[in-house]
Design a protein around this nucleic acid. Structure first.
Lengths: 341, 341
DNA sequence: GTGAAAGCGCTAACAT
DNA sequence: ATGTTAGCGCTTTCAC
């Protein structure tokens, strides 16, 4: 491209020429590094602004071996939970100069591997990835990346490096205990048909273990995929109650379908929580405002995002410790849909 | 760093050494470019895999002047609308080799400028940005970036380059016409207290213009900020109805507060849509499953994301045309909360 | 089909 | 306080 090509983007050299200051000094001014006299600084800034110069981070990153990107990998954006995590990450990163790069895996481990490969090829300052279930290749890549890796959402497993999340097994377990303690015995589970949603799976496992402690077994189950969660919650609830009318508790794998179920029960005039108890999972405050508050367990999503971002952002200070394990404690909210003892 | 430094990430050079093939040929193999014999290709791939080589896109991008990043700037992630847009973008980009980089502005034009500057410094293949209201600086940066820019969500204004969205003015206008036509006359508006949510503002302006056509004025207004939208919807509805009990229609600036209002009215046994009509905005299918379907207008969020991503992704093919303008047509859904003529 | 040389735009390290 | 030199790890271009 010719120097006068209007499409060529500006370089330090252009600012240098325009201001009569060496490239190096221009670079220093633009990065606020080293001592530069007030006079030259002004000259440079004026020239840069006048030309509309935007630095080229690609070149900068290559030269300095520093990249202000943080890779963030989530399974889905439609799940409502992940945007909240992203929001926490984004808020925490806001003033650190770090910038999130996002990838979505659609709950596919292969796709996750591809996304991670792509991200690591940008040599980010860190990677935040949902869950601990990865392909062997993906795991190897993460281990060899030489940057802080934070696995989020879930702590049940062996982390690559750091981990921030809750124990979904325990979440399920504690919900089961609370339900049993409240006197419910004929319990149904309603969830998503997602073999690769490991967290939902672990919650169900923990839940069953919790019931088993009291010699109780799951009486019935109902699964769905896709569609409006609220509506699905209604439909599934109708289906399971039609099939098993004697159920006295319904445990939903998320709050949205739980809310649908709650609305269905209220419509039908079912006595909640007397004749039938209900509980969901996530603690989405979206639902505050429903006629009755659904029992739920907070999944600490925003906080998870925050803390994960903090680990990456703080990695400059405390020399490469790594391997943090932060287990957050979800709190059980009985709402109005579990009978109180 | 020494060659045997375990922390040094691998380079083409390492793969070259390990496979006995020149760096250049290794590069060709890894990018599937040019003719390479089956034999060397295998040698190279084997070595790369064995070493766990991950290419350095920073160096690649600098050398080739090609970057597979697309900048995406949204005002918020908690708004529920934007994750859907992102989802559409992400889905559309999935198989193009392009990767989204996200930035959040919190509805601040200054922050948007900073985020854009940051993004442009990575020389992305394109930028998708919400809205047409930018600082003069930001606008200049976008104009001079020399890459496709797509402003999304809103078409009411003068775009920098391409634009994909709906007319919020018209959305408000048409809703007003429908309401007036249905016979409502004492109309209240409930919305967010957000001076920089230009789309909500334009909807309100259009709405008022639509009422004015019939000689009707807004009878009352109520604004909120923060908190659970469903709950806020309830509270605001109670407030406005207490203050102005003779209102016969409530227009909400989004579906979530509208749904809260709807639940409130049902609780209170108010005759909807007979004595009081309700309408929201966005068409969030999250709400399907409520006892009654709220009237709303689809904001085409996912489709907007898709089409915006398509414009960026398609920019290789049709030589730098640019300046597309895609206005989507939101459809009015009367639901069960507007009286039918 | 393969390789060697040059350089992308910047910054680290060392002058001065 | 400012400038000079070398090179980050790739890809482009050209030679073989």
């Amino acid at each position: 491209m010719a120097l006068n090509d209007p499409k060529r983007t500006l370089t330090l050299r252009d600012v240098s020429d325009a201001s009569g200051v060496s490239e190096m000094t221009v670079s220093r001014v633009l990065r606020n590094r080293g001592d530069v006299s007030e006079a030259t600084r002004d000259k440079v800034l004026e020239a840069a602004r006048r030309l509309g110069y935007v630095p080229n981070k690609i070149a900068g990153a290559l030269a300095s071996q520093r990249v202000n990107l943080v890779g963030v990998v989530v399974p889905s954006l439609s799940n409502l939970v992940f945007p909240e995590v992203l929001s926490g990450i984004s808020a925490e990163l806001e003033d650190t100069g770090l910038q999130p790069v996002f990838g979505v895996t659609n709950y596919s481990a292969e796709r996750e591997e591809a996304v991670l490969y792509e991200m690591l090829s940008w040599r980010p300052s860190g990677v935040i990835v949902s869950g601990m279930e990865h392909t062997p290749n993906a795991r190897a890549m993460l281990e060899n990346a030489g940057i802080p890796i934070v696995e989020i959402m879930d702590v049940d497993g062996t982390p690559v490096d750091s981990v921030v999340g809750i124990s979904h097994k325990r979440a399920g377990l504690e919900m089961a205990r609370a339900i049993v303690k409240a006197g419910y015995r004929r319990i149904g589970f309603l969830g998503t048909k997602m073999p690769d949603d490991h967290r939902a799976r672990k919650r169900l496992e923990g839940f069953q273990a919790g019931l088993a402690e009291a010699g109780v077994e799951l009486s019935d189950q109902e699964f769905y995929s896709g569609g409006s969660a609220l509506l699905k919650g209604r439909e599934m609830t109708e289906a399971i109650l039609t099939r098993s009318p004697d159920l006295d508790f319904l445990y939903y794998s998320n709050d949205m379908i739980g809310a649908g179920g709650l609305l269905y029960c209220l419509d039908k005039g079912i006595d909640v929580p007397g004749r039938l108890g209900l509980a969901g999972f996530n603690g989405v405050d979206l639902l505050e405002g429903l006629p009755r508050r659904l029992a739920t367990m907070d999944s600490c999503r925003r906080e998870i995002g925050r803390q994960a971002a903090q680990i990456i952002a703080g990695h400059g200070h405390s020399d490469m410790i790594g391997g943090e394990r932060i287990e957050l404690e979800p709190t059980l909210d009985y709402g109005d849909t579990i009978r109180r003892a």
